[in-house]
Write a protein that binds this DNA or RNA. Structure first.
Lengths: 116, 116
DNA sequence: TTAATATATGAGTATATAGTTATATAATAT
DNA sequence: ATATTATATAACTATATACTCATATATTAA
């Protein structure tokens, strides 16, 4: 089963178009501002205005990032009157952030210990 | 335990410096050429020359990307005579690629089904 | 209708970085 | 020492994109 997954992974990554898709996904998560937005959305759906407040960024910028994240399917949107509510649509976000956060934390800890 | 992890994740992402580190990690995986290199390294360590061959990219470009990936701790290197062998150092790469590949595959499948 | 509010978008600038070419560095062999 | 080979790096160009400002597009209220 493990080797099955491994070979599926290797197979996926051999297609150029697929690799570009995967890179696009990672790139979406590779901007601090977008990670901040995602973090805010981790406790539930939020309007653009609320996200502008919680991030302290300009409205136009927040709107653009939300749009990008929605285009690639990571976020979803819901209109309600004047407001647009965004939410996390692709649950893989949680696993991805946990993995990277864990790795970054482990690395920071190792670097600290290397000084002793 | 689940809520513990969740809150640890939320706590991690609240530090600006930490968010930048996490973004940097994702960004490293957000380039097709780097993903190709990583894919080649998934079957074991390789020299720069071997990676130049397997990717078809220019030597200088491959060397640069390998350097970046090594700086952030995703890859490791080993010198042996004229050759430098690179390998995957941070095992979280496997989990990350599996998650994203799975999500991209699922999305492609969903898009296909939406046409029927 | 007009006004007010929330969100999206066009246009511009600034910056980061992928890729290239040429060259430097380092290790081995002759 | 010189030549050869593998890798790294400096300098440059081209491109992508984050951010800003101004404005457009809804949607609701008066």
């Amino acid at each position: 089963m493990k080797s099955n997954k491994q070979s599926q992974l290797a197979r996926d990554l051999k297609s150029d178009a697929f690799i570009v898709k995967v890179a696009e996904r990672f790139k979406m998560l590779g901007e601090p501002m977008r990670l901040k937005l995602i973090q805010s959305l981790m406790s539930g759906e939020r309007t653009v205005g609320e996200l502008v407040q919680s991030t302290g960024a300009a409205q136009a910028n927040v709107s653009r990032h939300l749009n990008h994240l929605t285009q690639v399917g990571l976020l979803g949107r819901r209109k309600a009157g004047l407001h647009v509510y965004y939410h996390i649509e692709d649950e893989s976000i949680y696993g991805l952030c946990e993995l990277v956060c864990g790795s970054v934390r482990a690395q920071a800890k190792a670097e600290l210990e290397a000084l002793n």
